[in-house]
Design a protein around this nucleic acid. Structure first.
Length: 502
RNA sequence: GCCGCUAUGGUGCAACGGUUAGCACGUAGCCCUUUCAAGGCUAAAAUACGGGUUCGAUUCCCGUUAGCGGUACCA
């Protein structure tokens, strides 16, 4: 599936030769929404695939019927789409590939690499945790039950299939970010490959370790880019690859994203669902830039990077080894940077979508002179906007005649008793202008101030409140030009009513 | 507990044996000014600790401490 993302670079890229073409996958589990850590993993996979002419695969890992919530898939897909992460194959659903995993497991059973385990799950649950040893010391225990030697512990119950981890020896693998790694096999428990069957079924669904490996082999994945929380699962998977007679891919574990207190990112740290950022009105490209720099750097000091630059520079070598803290203020900075620096034509469609959703959009702004006005207005507004919805709220008076006066603004800038008269004179002076442009408005306004014996600033601030209802807005005369003569004069006269004794 | 990963200002990253330890966010101040931003300038702020190796360690090795991850018939 491909879709047209927002301002994505040209991805026609070179169709790398099929032999050494990288194949990567993003494999979320629908047990929760798309959180920022998952989004970052998806982004890295995508950048890697697009950078090196590879194939991006989306796979939904829904092998846990208990915890799985199918309706969450929609949100995950939506989040990815907003992020601009697209894929070439999939989405594949593991819940529909059960047979494949069971067949592989049966082969492992036949070859002696796996065994039927009749033990109750409790026997293994927590088996790898510490338990009391002699003299109160804690000792480690890895369960090796008798089933693995062909002696069923509790015959008669439905067995699960477990992998028979070799006794002794080490399992090694290469990690593109952490280098060569090795784990002692004695540290690895005999993990479950396939759940025991229920309701007459011979076996249940495959477990994570089994399904990832079978799928990664089946989908010819060359690079497994995933969170570092999987690093200790990797030796199990390498053992499986070997037992299956397959070559392990290159692994690339990327550090995790933590909350401000350096603890695991959770709801109490604020929004962790990517879709929340979409709803809040961040620009996807800004979010992408921010996310890309969490755990990765191009090598130098640059950091404001368009997606096209990310695509030119991304590499696994630049991935950091240390966990990163999700720093929202910096995300906001990136957003304001993009808001200001994006070519205006790239920003316009996003503002248009925002105004449509708030009901302020007018069809006349879609083309011709209307579009020109729209473009000019957005350009004037954008240095002061922080999030897309600000175009509908903070900038409302620019797109609609229905706006209200902020009490604080009136209190601050309409204090002087001369204000009503000044505003009235200004309305007359502006109404009489034969030409409507920045300088004409400027001169006329300053003349009114001078004639009234007040400083220009006082009048300027008072006018601002009168024509946009707030204390903060773009420079006044630019605002006047954009609003137009008729509207400015009308608003100045309407403002006079605000002074009428109640 | 055990296994593993990591350790540069508050935060994100640079410096991959030799720099006055750099950039950015944030913070403080100044400038600009028509409100508020933006922008410009300046400032405070870091190599966790202890041992080695080396002519020389932020960088390599070991230990300590701390944080994180894993330790499920979760993924």
């Amino acid at each position: 599936m491909r879709f047209d993302g927002d301002s994505l670079p040209d991805m026609t890229g070179q169709p790398a030769s099929s032999s050494n073409q990288p194949r990567v996958r993003f494999a979320p589990s629908p047990t929760g929404y798309l959180h920022v850590g998952g989004a970052r993993t998806a982004l890295f996979n995508w950048l890697f695939a697009r950078r090196f002419g590879g194939i991006m695969i989306l796979r939904i890992e829904d092998t846990d019927a208990e915890r799985n919530k199918p309706e969450l898939v929609t949100g995950i897909l939506e989040g990815l789409k907003w992020l601009g992460v697209d894929w070439d194959e999939g989405p594949f659903y593991q819940s529909q590939r059960t047979e494949l995993y069971q067949n592989s497991a049966k082969k492992l059973l036949a070859s002696g690499a796996a065994f039927l385990c009749y033990c109750p799950p409790e026997k293994y649950v927590g088996g790898d945790h510490a338990e009391e040893g002699a003299e109160g010391t804690k000792v480690r225990r890895v369960v090796r039950c008798s089933c693995r030697d062909g002696k069923p512990s509790t015959p008669g119950v439905k067995p699960a299939i477990r992998f028979k981890v070799p006794v002794g020896g080490k399992t090694k693998f290469f990690d593109a970010v952490f280098g060569e790694r090795e784990f002692s096999n004695d540290e690895i428990e005999d993990f479950v490959l396939v759940r025991s069957g229920k309701d007459g079924a011979e076996f249940g669904q495959a477990m994570y370790q089994m399904s990832v490996v079978v799928d990664d082999v089946d989908m010819r994945i060359t690079h497994v880019i995933r969170g570092a929380d999987h690093i200790s699962n990797t030796p199990k998977q390498v053992l499986l690859y070997e037992a299956l007679g397959a070559t392990p891919p290159v692994f690339a574990h990327v550090p995790l994203i933590l909350g401000a207190d350096k603890s695991r990112l959770s709801k109490r740290h604020g929004a962790t669902d990517v879709n929340m950022y979409r709803i809040e009105g961040f620009l996807p490209e800004a979010f992408r830039n921010f996310l890309a720099l969490l755990g990765w750097a191009p090598g130098g000091d640059e950091q404001f990077l368009r997606t096209s630059e990310l695509l030119e520079k991304f590499s696994l070598e630049g991935v950091s080894h240390t966990n990163a803290v999700f720093d929202r203020p910096k995300l906001e900075w990136f957003n304001t940077q993009f808001l200001q620096k994006l070519p205006i034509e790239e920003l316009l469609p996003q503002v248009e979508a925002e105004l449509k959703s708030s009901g302020l959009w007018k069809a006349e702004w879609a083309s011709g002179a209307g579009h020109e006005w729209f473009s000019k207005t957005v350009d004037l507004l954008r240095p002061r906007v922080r999030l897309l919805p600000d175009f509908s709220s903070w900038s409302r008076a620019f797109f609609s005649d229905e706006f209200s006066y902020e009490q604080a603004a009136k209190d601050k800038f309409w204090k002087d008793p001369k204000v009503p008269d000044l505003l009235s004179s200004t309305a007359d002076a502006l109404a009489a202008l034969p030409e409507w442009n920045h300088d004409a408005c400027d001169h006329a306004t300053r003349a009114v101030a001078e004639a009234g014996g007040v400083k220009a600033g006082l009048l300027i601030n008072a006018i601002r409140v009168a024509i946009v209802g707030q204390a903060v807005a773009p420079p006044l005369f630019d605002t006047m030009v954009v609003l137009g003569q008729e509207r400015v004069v009308r608003r100045l006269r309407a403002a006079l009513k605000e002074f009428a004794p109640a």
